[in-house]
């Protein structure tokens, strides 16, 4: 086995446990999505199925918002797809660590979300597939469960921004980012990624800034110095 760069997490259970704080926030936002989906004319079954199959919060919110505003199907799909383009390089990043049959790799890929991917990071350029599956399953359960609650409860629960929950995701991403900043190259990539994304926010459709920020990882190619694990 390869040595973990931080913490001994390596089983499905470890992944599921490490995803608990994430799952709590995801559950709250799943409820919000359920409520919003109803208002957007997405039926209860369709909303729950969307959470189970798309499993990508921002993209689902974007698609539902487009529909709620009276937009067409192609606009809604395009908005969601743009927000999810980042999963192409993310999928490539974990690909070497996923083994087994085609179906197994497909199912594991389905459980990739930003949070499960970050939790499964096992040092620079390395991911633990079991932790990915464990964490992804926790997130899936919380997201689908939250959606079901939201669909059923209507607007009893109200707007989560009232409780400051909209700051939960950036805070989670800060916590997930911190252990990945150990090398100078990583800190440079992070600073560049944030700068690129912020510069593009006023100039492009939502989703594009995140995709463009992947260009910051190109600093890994400079001077042939490899980001070797410690």
């Amino acid at each position: 086995m390869r040595r973990a760069a931080h913490g001994p997490a390596r089983s499905y259970g470890d992944g599921a446990r490490r995803a608990v704080p994430v799952a709590i926030a995801v559950l709250a936002f799943g409820i919000t999505f359920g409520v919003l989906a109803r208002e957007a004319g997405i039926g209860p079954l369709a909303a729950i199925l969307m959470s189970a199959t798309t499993l990508a919060g921002s993209a689902q919110f974007a698609a539902a918002s487009v529909l709620a505003a009276g937009g067409g199907a192609s606009t809604a799909v395009l908005a969601a797809a743009l927000l999810n383009v980042r999963y192409l390089p993310i999928g490539v990043s974990v690909a070497p660590w996923l083994e087994g049959s085609l179906l197994r790799r497909l199912l594991t890929a389905h459980l990739i979300v930003d949070e499960s991917w970050a939790i499964a990071a096992d040092g620079p350029g390395r991911w633990n597939p079991r932790v990915l599956v464990g964490a992804g399953t926790s997130v899936l359960a919380a997201w689908v469960g939250g959606t079901a609650i939201g669909v059923a409860s209507g607007d009893l629960l109200g707007d989560p921004t009232r409780f400051g929950l909209d700051a939960a995701f950036p805070a989670l991403f800060v916590a997930l980012l911190a252990p990945q900043l150990r090398s100078a190259g990583a800190r440079l990539a992070a600073a560049l990624g944030a700068t690129i994304a912020l510069a593009l926010v006023p100039l492009s459709a939502p989703g594009v800034p995140i995709v463009a920020a992947t260009a910051a990882a190109l600093v890994g190619l400079r001077s042939g110095r490899s980001e070797t694990p410690r």
Partner: peptide, 9 residues
Amino acid sequence: VALLGPALL
């Protein structure tokens, strides 16, 4: 890919 995590997060 090793720097995708820091950049994207």
